[in-house]
Nucleic acid binder design. Sequence first.
DNA 1: AAAAAAAGAATGAACGTTCATTTTTTATTA
DNA 2: TAATAAAAAATGAACGTTCATTCTTTTTTT
Lengths: 195, 195
Amino acid sequence: MTKLQKSIDKRNALIKATIELVNNNGFHATPMSKIAKMANVSPATIYLYFENKQDLVNQTYIEVKAKYTKYAFENYLESMSVEAGFELIWKRIADFKLNECKNAMFLAQCDNTPMIDEASRQEGIKHLQPLLDLWARGIKEGIIKPMSDYLLYAYSINPLSFLMISQKRGAFKLNDTNIQEAYESAWNSIRVINK
Amino acid sequence: MTKLQKSIDKRNALIKATIELVNNNGFHATPMSKIAKMANVSPATIYLYFENKQDLVNQTYIEVKAKYTKYAFENYLESMSVEAGFELIWKRIADFKLNECKNAMFLAQCDNTPMIDEASRQEGIKHLQPLLDLWARGIKEGIIKPMSDYLLYAYSINPLSFLMISQKRGAFKLNDTNIQEAYESAWNSIRVINK
DNA sequence: AAAAAAAGAATGAACGTTCATTTTTTATTA
DNA sequence: TAATAAAAAATGAACGTTCATTCTTTTTTT
């Protein structure tokens, strides 16, 4: 194994440990020493890869967010119809929250606490552009209600976070049936309804 | 001022300070000393009112959650139609998130982090029963889609949390117009749609 | 004057970070 | 290629600080 690879492995192990521990204990209740231990590394080693604890969690956030959006837009083409595009992206995001549960949990926590720098937060939002573009197109075509991106996001994508957290708490179990129900709810909340 | 009143005032000041500081810094980044200072009280005095820090935040959570549900169901009568009842409750909740912004922020953070004991979380959920009952009635009458409470909640009530957080970050401004849009989205996502 | 409430200072534990060394890798020379 | 020197990576222990909580003293109430 090359030197570079070893470095990447260590960095990845640190990021993985950070996600795991922050998910279970929150940012301030996860000491660097525990992150180091879980990553099989000395505490001091963390500081070779990251400036400090804040930098570690910022970088973790950006990395996970990038993974999320990459996953979401896989297979999406701008040539698709608005309906097809939305359904595809929505279901990919649902998949992510289901299959990459730990990553999704981590993002949910970051997005609801003052854990992350505002700058890193901005950095994370950038990659969502294709969805915003799709919505703009949908509105122009009269298929999607003319609402702000925030409303569209709140009623179609964001509820998945709540469902995931409920699932994590064991209060609710997502499956193929209610994923389809949820998708239809999401779509009905943003589409133009012909009476 | 009576002794009892003074005690209640002190307890309230402590809870208010906890909300303020946890909102801005998160649970673990708000020291007891700061809470004491903001409440004009000695750190030691906190321990006359609360067992420890965890107890302080648990009790704060339960108190705020109770306030939230009381606010939500004010004026609601079980004799109302499903549509009217839902609109009333939904708009009261929206009002709460708008007008009692700090309280709402606090709940959002509690609900998305491992900050609160599971027991206190359960305690907080109890008071939402009237809404669940309304949904059950709506489903029986064929007005609301037969979905689990979690899905109904996720797509109608919960998005308000996201909007509130976006507003807090200055990214989005809620007003009467988009509150109405949001309400219609919420209702369309859970109602039975006659094609 | 006794009891209760509140205060501030003190305590011990835990944390993020740094420091002095050691270990591992890479480059150079024979 | 083998030996060795230089550089880089990694370490565990140590440091200074911060924090939740407790202890002792003072103030307020009864």
